[in-house]
Design a protein around this nucleic acid. Structure first.
Length: 465
RNA sequence: GGCGGCAUAGCCAAGUGGUAAGGCAGGGGUCUGCAAAACCCUUACGCCCCGGUUCGAAUCCGGGUGCCGCCUCCA
């Protein structure tokens, strides 16, 4: 059974068939770097990182490209306000993006192209569009002739005439048609600019992605993804530009994630109701934020609140506790009886179930539910007085695989220092002598240091909180 | 006005024709020197409302209500 994914282009779940067997070419629209990212920006980074991980888990070789828009009106404005160089601002927030997303368990893309490093290809792209009569110059600007592209509107499922109502013509723009959009913008005096056949200027917003996709992945790619709000006009325009140029389909599957809301309203920089990743991870372990995002289906809107994060924190803690209890038991296990086949079959069932859920349009909400079934099962196994190493290892392996896809770390790999080890040993002695007053005093003392002790038939277990 | 989405327990969230997953929070119990962790039981006779189709609907159809999004920079 193939992976099914919801394609915005057809508004249906479709079985995934890559262009080339075993390989996936995937492009995800990245941020405009003029500020720290908020958690709404973090959602596509996280969910498509998860998609990438899952595709890899299913054996695909994924070539993952995600851009940075490092020159644009908003960055120029921000640079002016901060009295900083445009490219310095961009560089600073690119680093911040990497730091924030890495904390959220997002792996770097294979390529992170930037507008400023793709200038040649962008200019060449526009030249071709002019040559094909899909674009025209007007006063140093270049516009795309939208109506000439017959299929315009196919992604957002809107007719050109319906879209016309919302189209705007900015001050100083010389469009033939309000629907036309800018490919090249002439520079205002003193603005950062690049030379082009149409004079000094810089690329319009949409053209960069078309040029980058073509440069790094080719004319037709497998998956093109981004936030729902990019489907129009950004992705619609990308399709128009790219398909006008190549005459080929730009991407076979278009994936869009839902929003993160605050008080039921979309979180966005322009509304100002945003929470920066940079700030929230001071308060919560970044992996909690990741878990919170992955815990819902990527297309559903999710509401953000501290209460929700606390809930996610406790849920993740439950998984981690079980995982670490398995590890603890592995170290102490007597390796006696227990029905190996029965448990290994059970574990295999959960793994299959996990795959089934993820295959269904990356239903991570259900996949996480399966992970909790695995937790429950593992806890029951841990209650048996005798365990076997191979079963414990099979459990751990299943946890590791699911955790890889979901993108959270489960293992507590910190070591205890000698002083604490000594205290634990002292407490063990006290308990042996039934001196519970001393034992409890030591346990309280360690609790002050955020170390929780748990007594089990297989010896004392510790964890940090 | 055009296009689209959502409405399920105290909170979050799956399920899209076969009799309500999972998590968090709450209550009761077991285990424990006491804890912790865990386990067991418990928490929606009902899935926004009203009709309809069906042996059977949260799921399909019609109508209504409420909320949200895109159509303009936006993940």
């Amino acid at each position: 059974m193939a992976i099914q994914m919801y394609n915005t282009l057809t508004r249906k779940k479709e079985p995934f068939t890559p262009i080339e067997d075993g390989k996936v070419k995937m492009y995800v629209c990245g941020p405009t770097v003029y500020n720290y990212i908020h958690i709404g920006n973090a959602r596509p980074a996280v969910v498509f990182d998860m998609v990438r991980r899952y595709l890899e888990y299913r054996g695909y070789d994924v070539n993952y490209v995600s851009n940075f828009t490092d020159v644009d009106d908003k960055i120029i404005k921000a640079a002016k306000e901060m009295d900083e160089d445009v490219l310095d601002v961009a560089e600073r927030f690119i680093q911040a993006y990497h730091d924030d997303t890495q904390a959220l368990g997002v792996r770097k893309a294979d390529v992170h192209p930037r507008v400023t490093e793709t200038m040649e290809e962008i200019i060449a792209f526009i030249e071709k569009l002019i040559e094909y009569d899909f674009a025209y110059q007007a006063n140093g600007d270049v516009y795309f002739r939208t109506r000439k592209f017959d299929e315009y509107g196919k992604l957002s499922h809107q007719s050109v005439d319906d879209l016309k109502a919302g189209a705007r013509v900015g001050v100083g723009e010389q469009k033939e048609d309000p629907l036309d959009f800018v490919l090249w913008k002439s520079a205002k005096p003193g603005e950062i600019s690049w030379s082009s056949p149409w004079g000094e200027g810089r690329p319009g917003w949409h053209i960069e992605c078309s040029a980058m996709v073509k440069k790094y992945l080719g004319d037709t790619i497998d998956i093109h993804a981004g936030g729902q709000d990019l489907s129009f006009p950004h992705h619609e325009n990308e399709i128009a530009q790219s398909e006008a140029l190549t005459g080929k389909k730009m991407a076979n599957y278009w994936l869009h994630n839902g929003y993160i809301n605050v008080d039921n309203e979309k979180m966005s920089k322009s509304v100002g109701n945003f929470i920066l990743v940079h700030d929230i991870i001071q308060q919560f372990d970044p992996e909690i934020v990741r878990f919170f995002i992955v815990n819902a289906h990527y297309r559903s809107p999710i509401n953000f609140s501290d209460e929700q994060l606390s809930s996610a924190q406790n849920a993740l803690e439950r998984i981690r506790t079980t995982y670490n209890n398995l590890v603890h038991r592995l170290n102490e296990t007597a390796n006696l009886a227990s029905d190996v086949d029965e448990w290994e079959n059970k574990i295999e069932d959960y793994r299959r179930q996990f795959v089934k859920e993820m295959d269904d349009d990356f239903n991570s909400a259900n996949a996480v539910a399966v992970l909790f079934d695995l937790v429950k099962s593992a806890n029951l196994y841990l209650q048996e007085s005798h365990t076997r190493e191979e079963v414990l290892k099979a459990f751990l392996k299943a946890f590791d695989e699911m955790a890889f896809v979901i993108g959270v770390q489960l293992e507590e790999n910190e070591m205890l220092d000698e002083e604490i080890e000594a205290l634990i040993e002292q407490r063990n002695e006290a308990r042996k002598n039934r001196d519970f007053a001393t034992a409890d005093r030591i346990r309280d003392e360690l609790k002050e240091k955020n170390i929780i002790l748990e007594d089990t038939p297989q010896g004392v277990r510790w964890k940090r909180v």
